[in-house]
Amino acid sequence: MTAVSPARFLRAILPALSLAILLIAVYHLNPRAISPLGFQLMFNLAIPIALATIAQMCVITVNDLDLSIGAYVGFVVCIAATWLQEIPVLGLLALIGGILVYMLLGALIHLRKLPSIVVTLGMSFVWLGLAILVLPTPGGQSPGWLAALMKYKPPPIPFLGGLVIPFPILAAVVIAAVAHVGLMNTSYGSILRGSGGNPKAIERAGWSLLKTKVTMFGLAGFFGMLAGLALIGLTTSAQANVAERYTLLSIAGVILGGGSFVGGRVSPVGAVIGAMTLTLAASFLAFMRIPPDWQIGAQGAILIIVLALRAIIDRLEKPI
């Protein structure tokens, strides 16, 4: 066993560090925001983004990119607000169908050696079209249990002095833990990551690359579905293009959280923290009274600063 190098350690805590700095900055601007209600309001829209980010991470693990995740989440939202509400069985079937389509796409991309960017870009129009077919005008209603779940307020914990952990934080911890254990702590998880890092070696060792690709795309479909369900629980009503921004947010979240586009190098915990950082960055900029036209740019600037820091750390790792 070798000791963890300082550069590696720095890189691992960089996402958490960015989030902590932002939190301190928010506290400085608006102390009221650092409270259970504040966390509830600032982070509840981070739950669907975190789930979409995990979905994107699954695809990035196998060296692909999903440009349809935002439209897919919108499709799930529309299904959940209509069919799942009126005819639960039909809704469930449609949602499972969505995951199956994702698995098929994984197989298609692997077998025909197609660029995933092109396939998923095309699929984004298919999902949007299907969503509009299901729900032509904004409306529908979220199933009651979903809205209740997203509004859940955990009871105070007695042995921590009655501390209330806001639901979005609880959900983020659960999402990060499940993805981390599944991908980082199981043996098949390392095969999955390996199929992105060194596909040839994995293939020679007798594992099916087709299977890993289909698994990862299937997981992306699954987490994307959870993202859509979480989102409809929050908005309580649907619109086809409700999650348009999620495609870029999810990619930014993965990268911000320490992942790389190639090489199977991803971090589930980092990805969830990345998604929360992006959400908090928007609140921070709003509290700063930065005009909205500049906010998108400022959000990008935060992303560039974090990536620049990572590049510096990477350089530390390779002494000249």
Binding site: L45, Q239, R245, A286, F287, P292, Q295
Partner: peptide, 23 residues
């Protein structure tokens, strides 16, 4: 006055939540 940049529902929902927090 606050205007969202992209005419997106999720963006405006976040904006409303921030306005609540700003008191």
């Amino acid at each position: 006055p606050f205007t969202t940049a992209e005419n997106q529902v999720t963006e405006q929902a976040a904006q409303i939540q921030n306005l609540v927090l700003q008191g």
